[in-house]
Design a protein around this nucleic acid. Sequence first.
DNA 1: GGCAGGCATGACAGCGTTGTCTGACCACCG
DNA 2: CGGTGGTCAGACAACGCTGTCATGCCTGCC
Lengths: 343, 343
Amino acid sequence: MTALSDHRTAIRPTMADVAAEAHVSVKTVSRVVNHEPGVRPDTAERVRAVIERLGFRRHDGARMMRQGRTFTIALVVEDLANPFYSQIGAAVEREARIRQHQLITASAEGSPTRERAVIEALINRRVDGIVVVPADESASSDAAVEASQTPIVYMDRPVRGTPRDTVLSDNHGGIRSAVEHLVAHGHRSIALFGDDPAFWTARQRREAFVATHQSLGLPGSARVSMGPHSPTSVRETLTRWTQTADPTTAVITGNNRITIALLLALRDLRLPLSLVGYDDFELADLVDPPVTVVHQDPAAMGQKAAQQLFARLLGDESPAQTVVMPTRLVVRGSGLRRSPASR
Amino acid sequence: MTALSDHRTAIRPTMADVAAEAHVSVKTVSRVVNHEPGVRPDTAERVRAVIERLGFRRHDGARMMRQGRTFTIALVVEDLANPFYSQIGAAVEREARIRQHQLITASAEGSPTRERAVIEALINRRVDGIVVVPADESASSDAAVEASQTPIVYMDRPVRGTPRDTVLSDNHGGIRSAVEHLVAHGHRSIALFGDDPAFWTARQRREAFVATHQSLGLPGSARVSMGPHSPTSVRETLTRWTQTADPTTAVITGNNRITIALLLALRDLRLPLSLVGYDDFELADLVDPPVTVVHQDPAAMGQKAAQQLFARLLGDESPAQTVVMPTRLVVRGSGLRRSPASR
DNA sequence: GGCAGGCATGACAGCGTTGTCTGACCACCG
DNA sequence: CGGTGGTCAGACAACGCTGTCATGCCTGCC
């Protein structure tokens, strides 16, 4: 019971406390704690006993400070509750965990300003690296961020400026597979309900749709309605397009929410349209008919991004790389041609 | 350009660099950075200019170390990709963010061992507090954790041992509302498909079901089938129970997954059963018929837990408190009595 | 017996901040 | 003109750990 341990008995014990109690130096305690070689077994045992008795736990903050790394990476997304992002989060956390790192997750709520603030806070903490699903394309290619030297991997959307590691989904291939699937089932008049063109992915998918429409030589010009969409707006557009001389017989929806709006509209209107949705969703095979979707694999994307990041942390100095992850068409029935009477 | 800033020019500049460049002391830089009073405006301006020029950013790790707090809280759950947990995560992160804290999220993958390891790692980092959805009831009422003094709030399931702050969902009330709803619509023979009784919540819901069954004076003994369930097992049990002299006319499912299994079974069997599911799910109103559910509000629970935690961090010393969050019955149609011919 | 070499251990500095204390300088007052 | 008090600034130590280097001791060999 030295004076040292006395006055801090309420506080957590430090290596100094352990050292005093075990009659060794702080460095020896450090060696024991970190399983470094060069400590006689009996000394080590004695130290361990004191550690146990005092309930000592190494202060990782101090350690990080000394070593200059935090064993922490961060993930910045728009909204953690969104399944697309939470699957990414789970995957990134997993990669971090198996490498003894911890993950700080932060939401930017879609605001570029907030996103920048969040990233700066993370940099101030000296996280070892960051995975970002950027809110907009200008995002954080900020001088301060550049200067920080903190490795960053972008996901789902690219950013302008200096090339950076980026993991994207194959929007073009996804849309093409959807169109081809519908065409293979006899459809010729296919429409796209896309998301707000403010989103890069929405624009990508629109372009892919138009391009595929042309390259397959489908008649007429491609029917496209970009968002934002409400169930009502979807219904109106749909009604219009199915009453032309060349009625739309199949639709592709640009994301999850639109798929749902469309399903509701279809149910109300009792229209026998075929449908391929972009983005899988949990109960796609429970609705009637089960919805065929273009499945992007957020978990795989998150994993890939984390792996890229860790490669950088391990010293990979190769030029920034952009990886495009494939999508998969999950055929469930809604993409087949149905006659109006089938229900 | 002093020798100091020279040899570290590649590395991030520190307050010492700024101080040297601005011909002031480190402490003055600190004061400027932290907007402390007592710095002449022109001095402050000069310092700020150098900060800007050098791209200095305060090293929060050092700050934390000095101040003894990390401005970090942590959330430990089973699986971040699970919507129940990711909604909690989003809510907790939000509470943290508005209080200038950051959130470390960690998955324990349902393993008590891993959970303990994860929590110890977080304690070693000196996170200011932890929100835990414990994997089992013995969880982490571990001596080491106790001794760490780190405030912990438990969620969804209580733990044994010393009372701790806990936020639970009103399983009893939720089940009762489900039963009462079905009874109000004429059902007398109601069955429960519960989850694996290894889970505390599953046991709670079973007990609530049995108790409500009795207190409402329903005929016969309560029909209960506890998990784990597969779609097949559900189908078999269901077939059996609907072929007795007193056929089951309504079921309550103990969670999300079971609800889905049951919906699949119902579709195959073309049984006209009424259904109330426990746990809301995203497309509950898109399936046919829309599923009536007992809605627990994970976001509200997470928010509550985080608020409790921050109260502790601000010095609240009152005895540990258990909060039971209410559930809400969302009536959507599947709970009404239907005749076999209605479809 | 003397010395090289290996092993166990310790002293010390330093990671980048901030809290405390001290000091320089100036103005104002009696 | 000495004393009082206020403002601005800096010196210094400390937070808890680890990397580097030094030291002491023992063994073994010539």
